[in-house]
Design a protein around this nucleic acid. Structure first.
Lengths: 109, 109
DNA sequence: TGTTTATATGGTTATATTGCCAAATAACCA
DNA sequence: TGGTTATTTGGCAATATAACCATATAAACA
């Protein structure tokens, strides 16, 4: 595979990977409505604060979110709303998949 | 987190995860132009055929690709072109990120 | 039937990811 | 200054992923 092409796909994969976790998708979804501090997200998610912080660092590292410290809290924001477009498509995949699965029941080995 | 919401994000994460590898992104990109058999993809990618086959099984499993056996070969096709929309956004993230990184050089600790 | 070719699967090893706890850092306030 | 709260970081154990080799399956054809 061509070197430049490979670099492009590596960069893309990094971002897809950053989104590839239920907790991080929840965070992105939540941030699409409002900025949120870590403690709010931690409360909503119900995991250890350090776990949430690490998920946020993955999103930060991929360039998907921004943050701003105000007082004791760190507020995170979505940097690109277009990330959300992805999910429209994903929903298509999931729904069609569910439909086909129903029509296929009993046909699979 | 709500149970249904969690299930939704798990389903979405499965698809994002399936896309989160350079080789699989290459495959999706290639299939967006044309159907391809495993041997063609293997040739282009330059990895072991078993490795490519496993990547394809990940994409199959996530519902992203379809396949059809003809003779000795198995031809894979993209099931949803909308998956490609994602990459427009990803490119935005990557490019803006590169720009900002340049303007930040020397400012990072 | 036996051989060849294309794919898929099982097994193994190396590496990466996840989640928690404990400890460090940083801002605020008494 | 010392204490409190919010967040991040380091470390560790459990689990998942990726790549290869060897093997199994399946179609084509002599």
């Amino acid at each position: 595979m061509d070197k430049d092409l490979l670099a492009k796909f590596k960069a893309q994969a990094k971002i897809a990977k950053a989104l590839a976790h239920p907790t991080r998708l929840f965070i992105v979804d939540e941030l699409s409505r409002n900025e949120r501090c870590v403690c709010e997200l931690t409360e909503m998610i119900g995991a250890d604060a350090s776990t949430v912080s690490k998920h946020l660092s993955v999103l930060r590292n991929a360039g998907i979110v921004n943050y701003e410290k105000r007082g004791l809290s760190v507020y995170y924001r979505l940097r690109f709303r277009c990330v959300l477009n992805f999910f429209g498509c994903i929903e298509t995949v999931i729904k069609l998949d569910a439909k086909e699965r129903i029509s296929i029941i009993g046909k699979e080995k």
